[in-house]
Nucleic acid binder design. Structure first.
Lengths: 168, 168
DNA sequence: CCAGATATGACAATATATTGTCATAAGATG
DNA sequence: CATCTTATGACAATATATTGTCATATCTGG
């Protein structure tokens, strides 16, 4: 990931940049979790939990989301999400109930208390955090950065699913 | 992190994009670790370990790097790195020795076996992995993506260090 | 309808990541 | 030189993340 010595050819320059890109992605994600979780620490939340609350805030999620669907949306494993959800249930931010439509499944909803913490206390801090990190970014910058991450994400998803074209 | 309903103003559009950006960053990092670690799984490595080996491969790192310096370079905690390094030492990829210049400190070097695994087996797979994820990226795209991540990283570092301008 | 395939939560194991604390070592300052 | 401050690895606790496995539930196709 960190710098690998190159000899200046075009292909090697691309590799060098790729290396730097993935290394920075790694560092960025860790710094996001470090600084982001600190921003909502008083609310007893972490970045991952804010992702869950954000997902539960979406249009169409009021009646709850199954753990499986939530795991797919967040792109994390069921097992990891079960742990996340368990801690959030323990802290009263969410509730988990049996899914009446599928006896294997459980449905996650935000509690009223969770909603108050989320909307009244966490969201303002999250927005302030965004403002700070992206102080020097225009809307155009953000859109471009997002575009690149999305392209990488889609490629990694294809690799993950072992799709045609991912292995040649 | 996921979608929050907006009312169409410019500030809210920026927030919405920011939200998406951070959510994708989270997902991307997880997918990087998932697919990247799988790419070097046969070598018994993870993405985090490849970052360590990459760091130890740098010019000037042949005589070893202290755990403290490595932690700073990778932007991870000393404790986390100690765990990482311990597992890599266990697997014979690196060696750890007392630092003759500072009795508190330890120096990490790549072993000859680690070097062979890294250079002959992992690096080709890592490069193939980069080629796959970045198949549709030009050098210019990569440079731009890198630029944005770097800007975010620098901002988060400033926040982390509680520097002036990070809190207004 | 039934067999095979897939999905689900629970349980397990392991790796990664943070913060806090402590005894010891080193650096900074007057 | 003495005192205060900071750095280091070790230890601890907790959160996050993956894969594997299993019993049970559900879906799919003939």
């Amino acid at each position: 990931m960190p710098k690998v010595k190159t000899n200046g050819t075009r292909e090697e320059a691309k590799l060098e940049l790729a290396n730097r890109l993935f290394f920075r992605l790694y560092q960025c994600a860790n710094m996001l979790h470090k600084t982001g979780s600190r921003a909502v620490e008083v609310e007893g939340l972490t970045t991952q939990q804010w992702a869950v609350l954000g997902a539960l805030s979406r249009e169409g999620a009021q009646h709850g989301v199954s753990i499986g669907d939530l795991a797919k949306y967040l792109m994390v494993s069921r097992q990891n999400l079960a742990g996340l959800v368990g801690r959030m249930e323990r802290d009263g931010h969410i509730a988990v109930a049996a899914d009446t439509r599928d006896r294997r499944s459980r449905i996650v909803t935000m509690t009223a208390a969770g909603r108050r913490v989320w909307q009244d206390r966490a969201l303002p801090k999250i927005h302030a955090y965004y403002d700070k990190v992206l102080a020097d970014f225009s809307i155009n910058d953000i859109a471009h950065a997002l575009h690149y991450l999305l392209k990488m994400l889609e490629a990694m998803q294809r690799i993950d699913q072992g799709e045609p074209g991912a292995d040649d």
